[in-house]
Computed example of a mutant assay.
Amino acid sequence: MKETFGEYIHKLRSDNGLTLTKLAAALDIDQSTLSKIENGKRNVPEEILPKLSAFFNLDLKKLEHEYLSERIAELIYPQEETKSLLEAAEEKAKYIRTIKTQQGTIKF
């Protein structure tokens, strides 16, 4: 998805003929909050992802992936060399994952 997460939610809502009020109620958020999300004036709260997934019968893992990729994109978009930045972040994530895994291992 190249659009923002808010634009994607707006498209889902529009394509399904839903009002802001109806979708906001299904997601358990205020109508004004949903409007701000759709217009890019507010970030998507992570806790609505499972509700969004269930309401539109979407794959939750894919939604989480899109959500996280947007958060990362928001952090790095001002940088010129995003590819090298993402490669460095991937290496760091692998390293952190090994540390966290080792910390959880009990040795006898």
Rank of each mutant, 00 (worst) to 15 (best):
P45T: 04
A73Q: 05
I99E: 13
A89G: 12
K83Q: 13
L63G: 00
K41I: 03
N39C: 06
L49W: 07
R97F: 15
L49K: 02
L60Q: 03
I76Q: 05
E90H: 14
L63W: 04
N39H: 07
L68I: 04
P45E: 00
L75N: 04
F55M: 08
V44F: 02
E90P: 07
A88S: 13
P78F: 06
L75P: 07
S69C: 08
L52M: 04
E91D: 15
E91F: 15
L60C: 02
E81N: 15
K92Y: 11
D59V: 01
E81M: 15
E87S: 14
N57P: 05
K61A: 09
R97Q: 15
E70M: 04
P78S: 00
L49M: 03
P45Q: 03
I96G: 11
A93C: 10
F56L: 10
G40R: 03
R71Q: 11
S53P: 05
E80H: 04
D59E: 14
L75S: 11
K83L: 12
P45V: 00
K51G: 01
A88E: 14
F55W: 00
K62H: 02
F55C: 03
I72H: 08
L68H: 12
A54I: 07
E47T: 10
K83M: 11
K62M: 06
A89S: 12
H65V: 07
S84P: 09
I96V: 15
L58G: 02
A54D: 08
E74F: 08
K61S: 09
E66R: 06
Y95C: 11
A88Y: 10
K51E: 05
A89K: 10
P50L: 03
E91G: 08
E87Q: 13
S53I: 08
R71N: 10
K92M: 08
N39Q: 12
S69F: 06
E91M: 14
I99V: 14
I76N: 06
S84H: 09
R42D: 05
R42G: 04
L85R: 04
R71C: 09
A54L: 10
Y67W: 01
N57L: 04
K94A: 13
A73S: 15
L52T: 02
R97G: 14
H65I: 06
E90T: 15
N43E: 13
E47W: 13
Q79H: 11
A73Y: 07
F56D: 06
I48L: 07
I99P: 05
K92E: 13
D59I: 06
A73V: 00
S69W: 08
G40F: 03
P78M: 01
I99N: 09
S69I: 00
E46G: 06
V44T: 05
E74W: 00
E74K: 12
A93E: 14
L63D: 02
T82H: 01
P78N: 01
K41T: 04
L52W: 07
A54V: 10
E90S: 14
F55I: 08
E46M: 09
